[in-house]
Design a protein around this nucleic acid. Structure first.
Length: 455
RNA sequence: GGUCGGAUGGCCGAGAGGCGAGGCUCGGGACUGCAAAUCCCGCUACACGGGUUCAAAUCCCGUUCCGACCUCCA
């Protein structure tokens, strides 16, 4: 069961092709550094993708990069970079952020500028269908009143729209018509077309690339809530006017807010991914971003982020403890409760509640040395964390090697402390513990011996 | 003005007619040289006013407050 923005209801998800799911996700316009609003979207859809995979579907996910647009051109002037240099710089930042947060790479990641040919073909088709026109100034416009389905996603009435105060309607047949293509201006990059040199409008790339990689119809189109209008509405207009079925289902993630407001430029700096991973580990940031329901606003505060990180550490600690006792912890033994929550429009908060129940019972099993029960709970938790993209046991090789070294050093200190405690020299033993604590290592004396945790 | 969403306990965050999700914080207890960890018990709710119903946080009507989008390219 998944929600569909267009129908405004949750319904059973049935893919067009058996066992295959095609998803088009609106990726970033690479004009600034990624902030957590951007990556929340990526994390939400990554969880969707992992879950569909888990259900046995082969998922094709295309996430575009819009690397030409007004903002990029303006920003390039400000930063004194070539527009493509700027776009590529930020594209790399996005890629890094995705990797850091363990977002699976898309099946393909097409760039707008690489698909000019497909855009021209689409425009030719639209003009042929009498849905678009080129008034001769180099622009190409879509005639929105020629479409029955226009504004059915956002449910607005075309006459109720406020027209932009600064709209240029000299060439438009209707002020609401939007530019598929923009005629070249001096100093701007351009590509040749039958209507003169120019560059893509904002919406055309998505229709062209979705068609190129997913065909006339595909299962799910995703993106942020703020893209519903005009971006997605215009995509629908372009694609349906060309005669394509386009997206069968629309999914939109809500944003990260601060004091109830959508993130804006003034907040942008502190909300950047590179800043936040100085406060918590990337895996904790991902846990935080994924923990709210994808259609709910996530009210950000540094405190909430910290608390979320602490909560995640509890899960991690449990798995580490379990690992000391069990030979192997499976990442493929989900509980029925977790699965049923996920099947209900990705009810992650409910799914997480089931994880905590497993955690409680797992800890009890740990205390009672009930290995069978421990195995069940540990399997369920690790499997669930894997689906959410935060399996603590998937570490890189360099991590593993450093971990070995660290482990050896800490064990030396623990041996010293143990000797001190055996001669009741608690001053020394506490000093060792405090010093380790200052380095971020917590010591626990348990009935089964001493354990340590890196904070 | 149009369209859409929201208001839940100290904080975060689910639920959508009937046994008060969950997490963090806080209080009490068990355990412990002390701590930590863990477990057990407990506290604080559904913006406001009406209505429907045996029963409303949930449905209906109204009100208040908050937020988003309304097409860049003059």
């Amino acid at each position: 069961m998944l929600y569909d923005t267009r129908a405004r209801e949750i319904s059973k998800f049935i893919p067009i092709k058996n066992n295959q799911v095609s998803i088009y996700l609106c990726g970033p316009t690479v004009q600034s550094s990624p902030h957590i609003g951007h990556v929340r979207s990526a994390v939400n859809f990554d969880i969707l993708r992992r879950w569909l995979n888990e259900l046995g579907y082969k998922v094709s996910l295309v996430r575009n990069v819009t690397d030409i647009d007004d903002k990029i051109l303006n920003k390039a002037v400000v930063e004194k970079l070539e527009w493509f240099e700027l776009a590529y710089k930020y594209e790399r930042e996005f890629t890094n952020a995705y990797q850091l947060l363990n977002v699976l790479p898309p099946t393909y990641e097409p760039r707008a500028t690489g698909h000019i040919t497909q855009m021209i073909e689409l425009m030719e088709k639209l003009i042929e269908n009498c849905k678009a026109y080129a008034p001769g100034n180099g622009d190409v416009y879509l005639s929105v009143r020629s479409l029955d389905s226009y504004l059915t996603l956002s449910r607005q009435n075309i006459d109720d729209l406020q027209s932009a105060a600064d709209a240029d309607d000299r060439f438009k047949k209707d002020v609401r018509d939007f530019a598929l293509w923009k005629g070249a201006k001096p100093g701007e990059p351009s590509w040749p077309t039958p209507w003169g040199p120019g560059r893509p409008g904002w919406h055309l790339e998505c229709s062209a690339m979705a068609f190129a990689y997913l065909g006339e119809s595909f299962d799910i189109h995703g993106g942020g809530l703020d893209l519903i209008f005009p971006h997605h509405e215009n995509e629908i207009a372009q694609s349906e006017a060309a005669g394509y079925g386009f997206a069968k289902r629309w999914m939109h993630n809500a944003w990260v807010t601060q004091s109830g407001e959508k993130m804006s430029k003034s907040l942008g700096n502190t909300m950047q991914v590179t800043e936040l991973i100085k406060q918590v580990r990337p895996i904790e940031l991902r846990w935080y971003l994924g923990s709210a329901h994808y259609r709910s606003m996530l009210e950000f505060s540094p405190n909430a982020l910290q608390e979320s990180a602490v909560a995640f550490t509890r899960l991690e600690n449990f798995l580490n403890r379990a690992k000391e006792i069990l030979e192997n912890i499976s990442d493929n033994q989900l509980s029925a409760e977790f699965s049923s929550a996920m099947n209900n429009d990705l009810a992650v908060p409910e799914a997480i509640a089931t994880i905590y129940e497993d955690l409680r019972l797992g800890n009890v099993a740990l205390q009672e040395s009930n290995k069978t029960e421990l195995q069940i709970r540990a399997n369920a938790i690790r499997s669930a964390l894997r689906i959410l993209g935060v399996d603590p046991f998937t570490a890189t090789k360099s991590d593993a090697r450093n971990q070995e070294t660290l482990s050896g050093l800490v064990k030396l200190a623990i041996a010293e402390r143990k000797a001190a405690r055996e001669r009741k020299d608690f001053v020394t033993s506490d000093e060792i513990r405090d010093k380790l604590a200052n380095l971020g290592i917590t010591i626990e004396d348990t009935p089964n011996g001493v354990r340590w945790i890196q904070n």
